[in-house]
Amino acid sequence: METQAVRDASARLLLAYDKGEPMAPVIESFPEATVADAYRIQQEQVREWVAGGDVVKGHKVGLASRAMQEQMGVDQPDYGHLLAGMFHLEHQPIDAGSFLQPRIEPEIAFVLGRRLTGPGVTVADAIRAVDFVVPALEIVASRITDWKISIVDTIADNASSGGVVLGSKPTALSDVDLRLVGCTLQLGGELVATGAGAAVLGSPINALVWLANTIGPLGIDLEPGHVVLPGSMTRAYPVRAGDTVVADMGALGTVTAVFAE
């Protein structure tokens, strides 16, 4: 894509946020767009958000589990940026109306203590860089009408990032086997899904390695203090005003998101 086309696609996505109305798929208006172009569109929006005063606080890996890939009709992971304005406090009311077509998914969030710079990052490097993990709920949202997304659409849409709720119980990696962490997801007091850490690329740490090695060649580092969401352990479930969502991850603790009436 030409630079102007990238800017035009970015402007349309930003307008969808401003108007609160989903738009037609990016790939329909820009059929020549590639995955590389989609990341350029994403980065153009991130520059706009940062210029407006927001701050990059981490990254997310999307579509890392088979369940999510099947649900969204794609066959590879992607990544997006987490901005400071996306973080919400546990148990405090969240305005569901501030998201377009919101869904929620449980994840094990990494909080980094050291910088990770790819390519060449190994599992050992990734483990050494993690300060602790916490249970998390990611609110995914789509500016694409009816979630009719291709891999190009979701990447351009900042990997469908919406919001993040972090639990408050930190756990050291040495105290847990992430592959074996089980999760139950309750929506409105009803059990809707179960999952395990192994659903995320075999282990969430593999998603962290993938992320560091994918964004490193683009000149992007994972910084100390950054939060990394490695991917959902279950399918994503729609949420609306009045919903309460609880993810219970056993020894890792619980995390609760409350959507205001």
Rank of each mutant, 00 (worst) to 15 (best):
2 E>N: 15
5 A>Y: 06
9 A>M: 06
10 S>M: 13
11 A>V: 11
11 A>R: 15
12 R>D: 09
13 L>P: 05
15 L>M: 12
16 A>D: 02
17 Y>M: 08
17 Y>Q: 11
18 D>S: 15
18 D>V: 14
19 K>M: 10
20 G>W: 05
20 G>H: 04
24 A>F: 04
24 A>G: 09
25 P>Q: 07
25 P>M: 07
28 E>N: 08
31 P>S: 07
33 A>L: 05
34 T>I: 05
37 D>F: 01
39 Y>D: 02
41 I>E: 03
47 R>C: 11
47 R>A: 13
50 V>I: 10
50 V>R: 11
51 A>E: 04
52 G>P: 05
53 G>Q: 07
53 G>M: 04
54 D>P: 08
54 D>A: 09
55 V>F: 06
56 V>N: 01
58 G>S: 02
58 G>D: 01
59 H>V: 06
59 H>Q: 10
59 H>N: 09
61 V>P: 12
65 S>F: 03
65 S>I: 03
66 R>G: 03
66 R>Q: 10
67 A>L: 14
67 A>I: 11
68 M>W: 12
69 Q>W: 10
70 E>K: 05
73 G>M: 11
73 G>S: 08
75 D>E: 07
75 D>G: 06
75 D>Y: 00
75 D>I: 06
78 D>M: 15
78 D>K: 13
79 Y>R: 06
80 G>F: 00
82 L>K: 04
85 G>V: 02
86 M>K: 07
88 H>D: 00
90 E>Y: 00
93 P>T: 08
96 A>S: 13
96 A>T: 11
97 G>M: 01
100 L>I: 11
104 I>Q: 06
104 I>C: 02
104 I>K: 08
109 A>N: 00
110 F>W: 01
111 V>I: 14
111 V>N: 07
112 L>M: 11
115 R>I: 12
118 G>N: 01
119 P>R: 06
125 D>G: 13
125 D>K: 15
125 D>M: 13
125 D>L: 14
128 R>Q: 13
129 A>S: 15
130 V>P: 01
132 F>H: 15
133 V>Q: 03
138 E>T: 04
139 I>V: 12
140 V>H: 02
140 V>P: 02
141 A>I: 00
143 R>H: 05
143 R>Q: 09
145 T>K: 11
146 D>Q: 09
146 D>H: 06
158 N>E: 00
163 G>W: 07
164 V>R: 01
166 L>P: 07
167 G>W: 04
167 G>P: 08
169 K>G: 05
170 P>W: 03
170 P>Y: 05
172 A>T: 10
174 S>Y: 02
178 L>N: 03
178 L>R: 08
181 V>R: 03
183 C>I: 12
186 Q>T: 14
193 A>F: 00
194 T>H: 04
194 T>N: 10
194 T>F: 06
195 G>P: 12
195 G>N: 10
196 A>E: 14
197 G>Q: 00
199 A>C: 13
200 V>K: 09
201 L>I: 09
202 G>E: 12
205 I>C: 12
205 I>A: 12
206 N>M: 10
207 A>D: 02
209 V>P: 03
211 L>G: 09
213 N>C: 00
214 T>P: 02
214 T>N: 04
215 I>F: 02
219 G>Q: 08
225 G>M: 08
226 H>L: 09
227 V>Q: 13
227 V>P: 14
228 V>K: 05
231 G>E: 03
235 R>C: 15
236 A>I: 14
241 A>H: 05
243 D>H: 11
245 V>M: 00
247 A>Q: 05
249 M>I: 04
251 A>K: 15
259 F>P: 07
